[in-house]
Computed example of a mutant assay.
Amino acid sequence: MANRYFDGIDHAAIYAAHRPLPPQSLIDRTLKFLREKVQGPLGQAVDVGCGSGQTTSTLGRHFEKVLGVDVSEAQIQEARKKETAANVSYKVGPAEELPFEDSSVELVTSGQACHWFDHPKFFSEVDRVLVPGGVIALYAYSYAFPMWQDKAKTLNKLIVDFAYGELLFADQVHMIDNYYADIQLPYEDVIRLQDDSFYVEIQGTAEDMFNEMRTWSGFNNYKLKHGEEAVEEIFNNFKKRFMKEMGVSVQPQELELPYRFYYFLVLTRKPQ
């Protein structure tokens, strides 16, 4: 993972506070796929590029042991702060070097992170650690979809236009737009699920949604290249446009605004 857009204690803290948890339906579908070939107690899962543990913690009740791995020390610190399960742990390390013995892991997950990896090295390492019939689950999600009266699509377009028209996203992020179709998977047994059935709806405020946007790599990259004052200027202008489109006069932190993240899921299985 050559790019380091998610480092820093402050960034990791806001990431932990505002990045969504995956929907339970996505976890259930992943486990159903795994159970088609792997029976008995589930021993070990690893969540790669775990960030502050959004998926890692969710897997804890399904496996004897779960490890979250991330290249960022700050992200791992945040994950450890909020983890309560004794069977879930975290380790700083690259996606391409996993601390497991051969054929010792039933499930490898990566949420909103696989586009940053060195794919040949990552999948070679995953193939080494997976048991026969073990599963790789890759998922990612859309930009926030504000559920506001009849303006949901218009508001979402404002967000997308801001993301790609003003911020500075690396080329890898566009793999999400194509549902990871450009990623060369290591196995032939593949399921791709990319309809609107997987989503998380956040009951928050407009300010909560804006804070999630601050965790984007494109936001952080713009700040690194142009400075904090510059990124705050374009972000404040965006927020003014957004609130104007909503037709409200209150402040973002005062406005209750449900918003959704829509997910896609790619599952692939190691041959037995």
Rank of each mutant, 00 (worst) to 15 (best):
T268V: 11
N220M: 12
F242G: 05
T215C: 10
G93Q: 13
S103R: 15
M246I: 07
G40K: 02
P94V: 08
K32H: 09
R35P: 08
K37C: 04
K121C: 10
T205K: 02
V200C: 02
F100I: 11
P146W: 01
L155Q: 04
I202T: 10
G227S: 12
E106N: 10
Y179L: 05
P132S: 11
F238P: 00
G165E: 11
Y164P: 09
R214S: 08
E36R: 15
P94I: 12
S110I: 10
L98H: 10
F100T: 03
Y180H: 01
I27S: 00
R61Q: 14
P94E: 05
L167C: 07
E83D: 15
Q54I: 03
R29Q: 06
K65T: 11
E106Y: 08
E201K: 06
A86E: 13
Y15N: 00
F123T: 04
M1V: 02
E245I: 05
V200D: 00
L193C: 12
K82Q: 12
S197G: 06
I9N: 12
S72K: 04
S124M: 09
V135W: 04
R128A: 15
Y199N: 03
A13V: 05
D195R: 11
E101Y: 14
R29L: 04
Y262K: 02
E233H: 15
D47L: 03
F261C: 01
